[in-house]
Amino acid sequence: MSVPRVAAVVAIVAAIGAAIWFVRKPADEPTLVRQRLDSFADLINKSTVDGAGMAARAAELSAYLTEDVEVEFGVGSPPIRGRETIVGMADRLQPRTAAFRLRFEDVMVALKPTGDAASVHLTAEIIRRSITTGEESLDAREFSLEMRRVGGDWKIARVTAVQTLKQAP
């Protein structure tokens, strides 16, 4: 085999090896956080598609939240505290009001030096579907999240709505 041919074979083998490594390498923590959030959105979306609402998935929803989770929607809305409260609220959502899809965009993850907590900044897109006309409308909101790794899983510990356009002086 000539030298150029050997070099070509080595290059191809190296490229295949690199591709396999890239595909199979263990995900880093920021990637795991993103995957966890995508999975959370999938869970919410599944509940809106199968007509069962969140009631059937309350236990699954709990797995994504820390026990002391806090949600702050901003001015005029009192904070919601505790996993049980949030799951209870989701439980009361009627399937017919749940005609929406949730999607996270521009998810930026900053891991804390301890490695077991992360700050996340993202845009949540909610695509609502009108029950009567079937027409879709999109609403987007910016959120800041604190996530903690509990028992090997990343969980949402705090959600704060970010006012992109500020009204209060």
Binding site: E105, D106, V107, M108, H121, L122, T123, E125, A140, R141, E142, F143, V162, T164, L165
Partner: peptide, 8 residues
């Protein structure tokens, strides 16, 4: 105007 990033 961007929200968390340039996609929305």
């Amino acid at each position: 105007i961007q929200m968390a990033g340039p996609h929305v």
